[in-house]
Structures are given as structure tokens and as C-alpha cells.
Design a protein around this nucleic acid. Structure first.
Length: 154
DNA sequence: GCCAACGTTGGC
DNA sequence: GCCAACGTTGGC
């Protein structure tokens, strides 16, 4: 089993929105970055666990966990010219962007803030992509060691 | 709101 | 293939 971290802006779609979804499942649409897409398409397997990360907000950090519920399939929002993430270069015959379905697992009692994680950038979380300077990946792998260490902070 | 870092686009 | 211009991300 693999571990992941997936970012979302809580003003757009936060962990409470996921929890409120029917069956607590939603499709993770809108990824428009090739590296992030490749992680989803090539790496994510049903049953994998992922941290839910709130970005671009007052207290960015890890707020909970979810599980991959369905493996990668075409992101239909890329075909919809009314959608915020419309991409005219993607079409149903040759979809450029993919998404997975994720299911809510649980919220953490307290957010593990980015500021706290940064304290381990030279130690336990060395090489964690989230802490790399200029990192903009919205989906990234987490090693088992990193996963367990981060959870121990919660 | 600012801005650094990064990815993408497109002219050449 | 290079690279300048531009757009986006996301912390602060």
C-alpha cells in the first residue's frame, strides 16, 4: 500500500466538504499538473491512504485522512467549457487529465500545521516534497516512514 | 495583497 | 531547442 498527500484549498473544497459528500466519497477533479497527474494515474491504488492538506489558508497543514476509493479515470471537468478547470486540449477521445475517487476516513483532532512540519525538514522529514523550497505539487507521495512519523505528531 | 518559485506557451 | 513572457500556486 502506498501513502499520499493531496492539497486542496478549504475555501474551495475542505475536509468538511468531503465528509458531507454522499457516502463520504467524491472525485478529486481539477488536477492540471502533469507530475501530480502521473502520481494519480500511475501510483494510486484502491485502498491507498492519503493525507488531506489544506493549502492557501490561514493555517495550512494536514487536517485528516482519506482513502483511494477508485483508481484513475478521465477528469470530465476538463471537457466542460463552463468549468473552472476547462482545458480545450483535452477531449474524451484523448483525455489529458485524470482523477481518482477518494473516501473520507477521519479528521485529525488538531491540524498538523505546515509550520510544525517545517521543524523536521532537516530530520525525520528530510526529502519530504511538501517542505522543498518552491514546492507546488498538489499531489505527492509520502513514504511509510514519513506517514507514521507525521501521524505521531497528531 | 505581495511575491518567489515554478510550469507552460509560443516565437524564433 | 532556447528562452522570454506569462499564468498559477501558495506561504506569508
Amino acid at each position: 500500500m502506498n501513502y499520499w498527500l493531496m492539497k486542496s484549498e478549504p475555501s474551495e473544497f475542505g475536509i468538511d466538504d468531503l465528509k458531507a459528500c454522499e457516502d463520504r466519497v467524491t472525485h478529486w477533479d481539477g488536477v492540471r499538473n502533469y507530475q501530480a497527474r502521473n502520481f494519480m494515474r500511475d501510483g494510486m491504488k484502491k485502498g491507498d491512504l492519503a493525507f488531506f492538506y489544506h493549502s492557501n489558508c490561514e493555517h495550512p497543514g494536514i487536517v485528516g485522512m482519506m482513502r483511494v476509493h477508485r483508481e484513475a479515470y478521465p477528469d470530465h471537468t476538463a471537457f466542460d467549457c463552463n468549468d473552472k478547470h476547462f482545458d480545450p486540449k483535452s477531449n474524451p477521445d484523448n483525455p489529458r487529465w485524470m482523477m481518482v475517487d477518494v473516501k473520507y476516513v477521519r479528521k485529525l483532532k488538531n491540524t498538523i500545521e505546515l509550520a510544525e512540519l517545517k521543524g523536521f525538514a532537516e530530520g525525520e522529514l528530510k526529502d519530504f516534497p511538501l517542505l522543498r523550497k518552491g514546492n507546488r505539487l498538489s499531489i505527492m507521495p509520502v513514504t511509510k516512514q514519513q506517514w507514521e512519523f507525521i501521524l505521531s505528531l497528531a
